[in-house]
């Protein structure tokens, strides 16, 4: 009996260290996706401490939340992931009474297909997926995804390691939806990507920014927000959203089910929608804000910059990613075949 007690005691001691303080808000966000200065301002204003942690992919975040192992109160997933989490009843409905600053969010960014009634999420940033290219190496016009298949740029093209992003150029080139669940269409896109692989330098994540700024690549698939950052660092770079259409994406703020700090979480979301704070964040991150008041306070040349602020009308063929459920397994298999091909 004594032995059992000792073992139990040790187990209890182990778990005692994992608890979190009561007045702390646990925020789970993408890396480098907030001006961390604003966290201090929030604590100053409200007395609520913020425990700030990062994730690298939507799926990594989802896995952690789904398994309930970690207690987070505020998350920043992308559109399709919010769609999935709503379907799986993983999110709290937000009390908009506590988030009056939502009035600053542009109407065009509210109630989008991933959260049709706008009950679960408050948009944070938005952007598109396009081609970042180095004008010192590419002298032709970049207006089509075709250029990513041009053997002239062999070993100087970067793609994303995330499969749905890298499938987008292939689907759009073939005229398919980026949310397709037709196995023949996926197969055709897969063959296109296998055909492209020999001229690709690498499939990377955030590293693409350093590579493009450093002149390692001529062309790369990047999100518009990263393009803004890269162009600032290296003026030779330019960005285009191909005419075949692309992906428009949104990252939004949500609160997971079962949080003990819903009120504090809503206060935090309201704080993020404050125009001054939103301005600080968009200036720091370089991604396009959804906060129209903050947008109007940006310098005129930034407002007019089509990279920072793509004209919505020019994005006619573009789509938002939606959750495709278990069908993602088919994408994965196709993507593994692409990556494993010689």
């Amino acid at each position: 009996m004594k032995r059992v007690m000792i073992v139990l005691g040790l187990v209890a001691a182990l778990f005692a260290f994992t608890g979190c303080g009561s007045d702390t808000l646990n925020v789970f966000n993408w890396g480098d996706y907030i001006d961390e200065e604003v966290l201090g301002i929030f604590t100053e204003q409200t007395g609520i401490q913020v425990n700030y942690q990062n994730f690298a992919t939507n799926e990594e975040m989802y896995t952690k939340i789904k398994n309930g192992g970690s207690e987070y109160d505020v998350l920043f997933p992308s559109d399709y992931m919010i769609n999935k989490m709503i379907k799986e009843d993983m999110l709290e409905k937000l009390d908009m009474q506590n988030i009056p600053n939502i009035a600053h969010i542009g109407d065009q960014f509210r109630n989008l297909s991933y959260d049709p009634n706008g009950e679960y999420s408050v948009p944070y940033m938005w952007g598109t997926l396009g081609i970042l290219y180095n004008t010192a190496m590419v002298d032709e016009a970049v207006d089509s995804w075709d250029i990513l298949w041009n053997a002239k740029y062999e070993n100087r093209i970067f793609m994303y390691e995330s499969m749905r992003d890298s499938f987008t150029p292939a689907f759009k080139r073939l005229g398919f939806s980026i949310n397709t669940t037709d196995s023949a269409e996926i197969d055709a896109a897969k063959r296109l990507l296998i055909e492209q692989k020999p001229i690709i330098r690498a499939y990377v994540g955030d590293a693409v920014k350093d590579s493009m700024i450093g002149g390692e690549g001529a062309l790369s698939l990047v999100f518009s927000g990263d393009a803004v950052f890269c162009i600032e660092e290296n003026p030779d770079l330019a960005f285009a959203v191909p005419k075949e259409g692309s992906n428009i994406w949104f990252d939004a703020v949500v609160v997971p089910k079962g949080t003990k700090h819903k009120k504090e979480a809503e206060a935090f979301i309201n704080f993020l929608c404050d125009p001054d704070i939103a301005l600080k964040n968009t200036e720091y991150i370089g991604y396009s804000t959804v906060n129209m008041t903050a947008f109007e306070n940006l310098p005129q040349e930034v407002q007019d910059d089509p990279v920072y602020w793509p004209r919505l009308e020019s994005l006619g063929n573009s789509e938002v990613f939606l959750d495709i459920g278990d069908y993602i397994g088919e994408y994965d298999k196709a993507w593994t075949e692409v990556l494993a091909s010689e």
Binding site: T57, I200, R201
Partner: peptide
Amino acid sequence: GGGQYILIGNLIEQQFLKVGD
């Protein structure tokens, strides 16, 4: 490897962190 040389470890990572299978 720039994602081009996927190994069995990458397959497992992909299933847990990206596909959720």
